[in-house]
Amino acid sequence: MTHPDALAERSDRDLLAQHCAGDPNAFGELFRRHKDRMWAVALRTCRDPELAADAVQDGFISAFRRADSFRGDAQVTTWLHRIVVNACLDRLRRIKPTSELPEYEMADRHDHHGSVDVRLDVQEALAKIPEGQRMALTLVDMHGLSVAEAAQVLDVAEGTIKSRCARGRSALAVLLQDRRGDGYPLPR
């Protein structure tokens, strides 16, 4: 068993290996390091805080149980992204599809600052594009993953990520231009 303070100095790969070898504290350190980023991925994927929380929990439980399935051909964070995104997609498939934003985001928009309006408009537009494009854009443009990492997370070819991002950006540009008349600058 490794002392918790010593775990903070270990790499993610070492922690996962220690977890597989029976160290009861190793996975807890992985969770501590990556829970916030996985929460952000889940929230952007699900667009619902309760659903995202459930998906993060499902994802980390799955990662805990299947840690020995980590092949080491990607970073541990990429592996965790894939598991959490899959948990999100599983939860989303179980509910009735909707293109509406959750209620908490539909508050009277005139009372909010302009940047909040932009964020809400982008979230609403994202909800209207196909899931594959939304997932690619979320991972690449919003979470800063490389095309290669996003391809691993979504288990598709890098070219597929590139084309989904390009099509998604084009679709968002049209949707956001319709929204304001002149459009918003999109991340590249």
Rank of each mutant, 00 (worst) to 15 (best):
L92G: 00
T2D: 01
A125V: 01
D178L: 12
R82Q: 12
I83K: 04
H3C: 07
D178P: 02
R91Q: 10
K128Y: 01
E50P: 01
R71A: 14
C46M: 05
A125I: 02
S99R: 14
R66C: 14
D58T: 07
D23G: 01
Q75L: 15
R180N: 12
E29L: 05
D121T: 04
R82N: 01
R94E: 12
C165M: 06
T78V: 10
A53Y: 01
R66D: 15
E50F: 07
L176E: 07
S11Y: 13
D68C: 05
G144F: 03
V153P: 01
D36I: 05
V153M: 05
A42L: 03
R10N: 06
G181L: 09
R44V: 02
A136L: 00
E105D: 12
S146T: 15
L15S: 05
P187N: 10
L137Q: 00
S163F: 09
D111K: 11
D178G: 10
Q133W: 02
S163Q: 13
L15N: 07
L120K: 09
D182V: 15
A87G: 06
L89F: 00
V118C: 08
R169K: 13
R44Q: 14
R119K: 14
A63S: 13
D121A: 15
R93H: 08
I61V: 14
L175N: 04
E158F: 01
H112P: 03
S170T: 15
V122T: 06
A127S: 10
S62D: 15
Q18W: 14
I61Q: 10
L175W: 03
H81W: 12
L154S: 03
W79F: 09
L15T: 04
L186D: 06
T98P: 02
V56H: 02
A26G: 05
S163I: 15
R164I: 03
